[in-house]
Amino acid sequence: MSPRRTVHRIIAGREAGTALGLIVLCVALWIATPYFATAANLSNVAEQSAIVGVIAIGMTFVILTGGIDLSVGSLVALVGVVIGSALQRGWPVTGAVGLGLMAGIGAGAVNGLTITRGGLPPFIATLGMMSVARGGALMLSDGRPISGFPDSLRVIATGHALGVPAPVVLMLSLYLVAYVVLTRTVAGRYLYAIGGNEQATALAGVDVRFHKTVVYALSGLSAAVCAVLLLARLNSAQPIAGIGYELDAIAAVVIGGTSLLGGSGSVIGTLIGALIMSVLRNGLNLLGVSSYLQQVAIGSVIIVAVLIDMALRRRVQRSFR
């Protein structure tokens, strides 16, 4: 498919409504406050969206297969603490980060195995892991933050490429990879099929258990990447980091139009969803809205966005017999 047709499809597709929402939101904030549309602020918004944006990639994969991953917030803390203590013990940065990523993949794979081999519902399996990982992070760090990391790690948060903050570059490249995987590869096609009809997919000879396990491992990996970003940004590993991130990630996926039933959706939608969340938060801050009211506003946006999405989908369906 030519790039032009891809662009055309995105414009005409389901992501268009979400993108329109983001544009309307940005224009409204641009009019409402002079502080929004400044280079510094926009760069800040993008950087903030990278944290949850990265987790939301893995979450999109999981939700596409019809699952859910509640453990990612806790995994961010666990991986952060793993990397932090490795660095404290004198590990080189690459080794420590590698260990952290492996820990994320490992915990995710455990989720996948309890779901596919143990037969637990994803909600339960990952709810358990959410608690296990949080407890592990607290045990490993003795409940205290670990701080002070070498510059070679911090550059992940502070560096720039062509004037764009490094976390944003990282996030966008991961989205690009995820987009190609989902739309162009065999594995991506299998994920949509599994979410659409798991039984039929298994009957077509696809190793459903394997692919689902991999998906949870990837979700663990994306939580681990998020942990690295957070570590570099805060210059400290907190055992209480990442609380509620799983819900933000799910919100980004859902606002982006991916069905919680599985089988339909895209990472482009998720990226826009993640941007909407952070633009909204930033805008409300700039407008001086109290943080209590902010929560109400963000919750309402999630509900309204999904209501609109469902209404649109029903209209599309009704146009067929």
Binding site: M1, R184, R189, Y192, A193, T201, G263, S264
Partner: peptide
């Protein structure tokens, strides 16, 4: 229930068991 992925296209449904054969290095040859 067991035959089709109803949310996907005719093409995706036909190709589902032979995607490996229709791909190179894991990328589907559309």
């Amino acid at each position: 229930r067991e035959g089709l992925v109803l949310t996907r296209s005719v093409r995706d449904n036909v190709a589902l068991p032979i995607l490996q054969r229709l791909s190179r290095f894991g990328v589907v040859h559309r």
